[in-house]
Simulated assay, not measured.
Amino acid sequence: MPSEPAAPPPSAPHVVLGAGAIGAATAVLLAERGHPVRVLTRSGSGPDRPGITRTAADGTDAAALRAAFAGAAAVHVCTNPPYHRWSAEWPPLLDAVVRAAADTGTSVVLAGNLYGYGPVDGPMTEDTPPAPTTEKGRVRARMWERLLAEHQAGRLRAAEVRGSDYFGPGGTAASHLGSRFVPPLLAGRTARVIGEPDAPHTWTYLPDFARLMVAVATSDTGWGRPWHVPSAPPAPARRIAAELAELAGLGAPRVAGVPRWQLRLLGAVDPQAGALTEMYYQFDRPFEMDSAATAAAFGLTATPLREALRATLDWWRGPQAPGAGRG
């Protein structure tokens, strides 16, 4: 049986690949906890905070990644290629990460989702067998298969942190409860969501996602398996809108679901929207994720939904939100 790579010293830096909503939240939390952080993006962007260095790098360049991973405790893979190009762009990106991590002894924590399970009746757990029925689901399932194989062979330590559709501070265009939902609601217009607004749905709060990424990366025992992010009980998008409106002191909000046929039409001019069509099953019926294993292993629980929505509302009303200050 191959021996597991040795754990790095506590002072070793963490690398965060990608500076979107999950990557930025993870980098900031790591820095707040005293870990040196290296953020890698194609453009060199990322949170401008003490303890965080930002570097421009091509995520498919294994040599560049090796240099960035040198001496690091873990790499948090939080990047995401354009939604409609996953099949072409994820394989070479993950391959470069794996080769660089194996060469440098860097552990890998992959920020994942629930696509690999496919349609499921009832709550999804980490033991739910993968049965993807979509191309993006197959991409995600193969990614974890590759990392798990590398882990079991002893070439690196790996884990995957899986969340449902995320929301919270920093969750904008890529969040179903982001740019198409909160700003229209606050302006008295119709908030729009994919699918059925009354279907119960698990939503994952971004700070909770970051907390589990950090907990796994700094643990001795969290490797070689997936973990689900602690998330509040399932809530329909219509209930989310009602709670946000109440917190904002507004009247009853208008919420509309975007039907599958409309996504197909949008796909003719917006490939990203069209790529959502195959994932429609997640939004037209109950969609529930169970995170009891994470609570038992790490003692983490979900931020209460109302508290998370209040923080989300405050962020959207603050100066950092997209469009803030425009009159």
Rank of each mutant, 00 (worst) to 15 (best):
R138S: 10
Q152N: 15
A158F: 05
L110I: 01
V97W: 06
R189K: 09
L148I: 11
V161M: 11
G105N: 03
P91D: 07
P132Q: 08
R189C: 03
S107N: 04
E160D: 03
V109A: 06
P169N: 08
R146L: 14
A102R: 11
G137I: 02
T104G: 00
G163F: 07
V120A: 04
V75C: 12
N113C: 12
A174Y: 02
G105H: 05
T133S: 08
G122D: 10
A153N: 00
R189P: 03
W86R: 14
A72I: 11
P92E: 13
A149T: 15
D121N: 09
V97A: 04
C78I: 03
M124K: 14
S179I: 00
S87N: 11
F167A: 00
N80F: 04
P183D: 11
S164Q: 08
A149H: 11
T134D: 05
G170H: 14
A173R: 02
L93C: 09
V75P: 10
L156I: 00
G71V: 03
A141C: 03
G112N: 06
P92F: 13
G118L: 00
Q152S: 15
E126W: 04
S175I: 01
A88I: 11
D103G: 15
A67I: 04
A68H: 09
G178K: 06
T104D: 01
V108L: 13
F181M: 01
N80C: 06
A173D: 00
R99Y: 00
T79N: 15
T106S: 02
E150V: 15
P123A: 12
E135H: 10
G116T: 01
A100L: 00
A102I: 07
L114S: 12
N80K: 01
A158R: 03
T106R: 01
E89A: 13
A73F: 08
M124Y: 00
G170C: 14
Y117V: 06
R146H: 14
Y117K: 00
A149W: 05
G178Q: 03
A153G: 04
E89V: 10
P92T: 13
P119V: 11
A88G: 13
V108S: 12
N113F: 08
V97C: 05
R192V: 08
V161K: 06
D127S: 12
H176A: 09
G188D: 09
A102C: 08
R140V: 08
V75E: 10
A102M: 06
A100R: 00
A174P: 09
G71S: 04
